[in-house]
Design a protein around this nucleic acid. Structure first.
Lengths: 126, 126
DNA sequence: CCCAATGTGTGGAAGATTCCACACATACAT
DNA sequence: ATGTATGTGTGGAATCTTCCACACATTGGG
């Protein structure tokens, strides 16, 4: 189960967002124009790689993601952390906070998240 | 000035970390074994794309990054935010904090960063 | 001056990824 | 039952990315 290419990621993110669908439906939600046959090629690769399963309903196959987005997301974040911050996720986060535009609400939510993380750490770790 | 392929990013990150170098030197710091000629091919592409400049010193070209790592880093983060969090960088950050292991020191630094961001926002924005 | 070491330029091979035309299959409304 | 809509399977083509062999150029020490 290697890494997703960019086309594969596009497909997966449609499935993550909209659930099981057949190719023609995925095509509609696809982030850019793509031919049905091209899309199906990618689906077959995802099937081989084990990232999706499919099930026949009527005459069409419905494809479903087998893995949650978190895994892929975190693995990409870790790679970025390694490339840009010697592997430190907290430096990565700090850089984002400093440079991205955040609303007051964003900020107060982040405070809460950090507090909560601190609590978990001081208790049983985990 | 499109996006960096993974090989191109490997080269850029060596230049970001170690500054101007000639191919043979970059090769030494490269994250994996690579033939000199293969490396130089990538350097030429980076040159065309405008990500590096080069300057002859003696008989060798010294290559220098023209763009700071921040740009590339943030653009990748924004792409991930779009793919995984409907574009919200703060949700992206929250997810990382919840899932990655952080030390107490990491956490108190993050608190500081968030506080500072809050101050900047309440003042003149920016 | 000459040679060994170090670099460069070039052209194309190899591999990975994405794309798609076309032939055939199947559901189902008429 | 038959025609039309909709799907699938297949085999390559096209493109992108990475790799590298080889011929030639330049430097500097002996």
């Amino acid at each position: 189960m290697e890494n997703l290419t960019s086309g594969e990621l596009e497909v997966m993110s449609v499935l993550w967002k909209h659930g099981s669908m057949k190719p023609a439906e995925i095509q509609k939600y696809f982030p850019r124009p793509i031919k049905n046959a091209a899309l199906r090629s990618i689906l077959l690769i995802l099937l081989e790689k084990g990232h999706v399963r499919r099930e026949k309903v009527g005459k069409a196959f419905y494809y479903t993601s087998k893995t949650p987005p978190q895994n892929e997301f975190l693995s990409r974040i870790r790679r970025l952390a390694k490339t840009f911050f010697q592997g430190s996720p907290s430096n990565l986060v700090a850089q984002i906070i400093r440079n991205e535009k955040l609303s007051e609400q964003d900020i107060s939510e982040l405070k809460k998240i950090v507090e909560e993380k601190a609590r978990k750490l001081s208790k049983g770790d985990k």
